[in-house]
Nucleic acid binder design. Structure first.
Lengths: 160, 160
DNA sequence: GTCGCACTGGTCATTGTGATCACCCTCAAC
DNA sequence: GTTGAGGGTGATCACAATGACCAGTGCGAC
């Protein structure tokens, strides 16, 4: 009865192939995993429709767009103002993502910028937003572990 | 002389189409943006090889893999131990990404977990890592602004 | 046993691909 | 002003991939 949203080992293997070669054709995947083309096609369609694949935007490197700086700004918000603050952040193009953290009105804001001055300006803009009480900016200097899901996939494949 | 890694407005428009339909064929893109198939093909190839597109793994939703919880752990590290700690984090499957933040030995660790108990275990594991002095865990309760690059793309298209 | 389901292997018409080609602008360099 | 490079075009080609079928099979659940 398939718990709507869980991936099985076969799906994980399809995804692993895609991970190695995002442009892989259905046929290529089929032979890589040893299934018929039909099966792969059906499963990929199901993965799509179940929303396992997130937006393509995640694959676009902001650095290539001219925004090489990455920062995480923790924003403390007057709780009643959460919705308004969220809306204000949504209007800032350099804001890539906003998560609500546990605890009081804490937001984690993922920001990109063209350069240091640009980041300074954006940070100021966040702080100036009504409902924002305090901000803490952390500039990402480098990537120690590149974003990955692979180990999780391997686990699903192993059935752990 | 193309500063190796900058995208122009046309490229941005291609990417925007892909954003709306990640499976779009070259032909479809070509007619959407009003260019010849040849041109689109050439530009896409260049985008690829310039590394504008990040790993496909970014599009895989860990929640669908059975890891619905997301947390950000700030880790303070004995500076000399940075490399060792990074290596240790790399060995933890639930660690999705690690960024080095400005300041002393601060790392931002993006973690996923199966459930609260699982997260607790992982947080403990991080804290127990040699070289780690202190950790602060923030659990992501919900997404206020979904990850996006779109506004940046629009800017590039507008030539701002 | 028999239902349902996932998978298979086959076919089909249609569409997309990659690799060329010759040719045309436009802009910047000489 | 001529030249040359870079990007764009449209056309062609052989080939591969797609989506949409369908009949058949194996298997576990009822």
């Amino acid at each position: 009865m398939r718990s709507t949203g869980e991936i099985d080992a076969v799906d994980a293997r399809l995804l692993r192939v895609l991970t190695e070669n995002p442009r892989a054709t259905v046929l290529a995947i089929a032979e890589r995993v040893g299934l018929s083309r039909n099966t792969v096609q059906a499963r990929l369609a199901r993965l799509e429709e179940r929303g396992v694949l997130l937006s393509f935007e995640r694959r676009i490197d902001p650095a290539a767009l001219g925004y090489p700086l990455v920062a995480f700004v923790t924003v403390q918000v007057t709780q009643r103002m959460l919705a308004e603050v969220a809306a204000a952040l949504d209007r800032v193009p350099e804001v890539i993502e906003v998560l609500g953290l546990s605890g009081r009105g804490d937001l984690l804001v993922h920001v990109v910028a063209r350069d240091a001055a640009d980041l300074y300006r954006i940070a100021g803009q966040l702080l100036a937003t009504e409902g924002v009480e305090r901000t803490t900016t952390g500039l990402a200097m480098r990537t120690l572990v590149e974003h990955r899901v692979r180990p999780l996939l391997e686990r699903v494949i192993a059935g752990t």
